[in-house]
Structure formats: C-alpha cells, structure tokens
C-alpha cells in the first residue's frame, strides 16, 4: 500500500507501523525538536519515549512506532 510522508510517496506492507515503513524507505529523521530544532527519529520503538511523534491525517502527536499504516495516510513531521 501507499502512504505519504511530507508529500512523498512511501510504499509499505499492511500491518507495518508508520515508523518501520519509513525506516525501510531510508527515512530516519521524523521530526525536529521544539527548542533546538534537533533531528529526532525512533528511539524506544515501542511507544514509550514519544521521540517519534508525527502528525497523521491532521492529528498531531501520534507515535509513528505504534500506528499501523493505512492506504493514502498523510504523515507530517514536526517542522520548526
């Protein structure tokens, strides 16, 4: 299936998480931090650290490591 990260088409398999599908497509930086603008990606991988939070279909602060991909999903990182 296909979804979008920052408007780029990403291919994924149903059942994979957004974070894992992005990683498979060499996208490691998911967002930038609020204060320093430092790049962040997945860290704990299991929903504990909240480093991987992205906006999914307009809903902010979703954990990319937990949410499973859906066809046509639109994912945005936190850009400063």
């Amino acid at each position: 299936m296909i979804f979008f990260f920052e408007n780029n088409e990403i291919h994924a398999i149903a059942g994979q998480t957004v974070g894992s599908a992005l990683l498979e497509n060499n996208v490691r930086v998911l967002r930038r931090t609020r204060f320093e603008g430092a790049p962040r990606g997945m860290f704990c991988g299991i929903g504990v650290c909240f480093d991987c939070v992205v906006t999914i279909n307009g809903v902010a602060n979703q954990r990319a490591c937990l949410v499973e991909v859906e066809e046509g999903m639109r994912v945005e990182g936190f850009q400063r």
Partner: peptide
C-alpha cells in the same frame, strides 16, 4: 521497557534501544 542511560549524542537519530530494534524486526520484518 528498555532501560536507557543518557550519553553525549544519544538523541541523534539512529541511536535506539535493543528492544526497539528487536520490535522492528520481530513485529515489522524491518
């Protein structure tokens, strides 16, 4: 969940936990 310790650079994308890496492999085949 994995216990982590802070160290210089641990917030760089690519630094992860063993559990996280395991979860990607066992749960996503990535």
């Amino acid at each position: 969940y994995d216990r982590t310790l802070p160290f210089p650079g641990w917030d760089i994308p690519g630094v992860m936990t063993p559990g996280g890496v395991q979860a990607l492999l066992k749960g996503n085949n990535v």
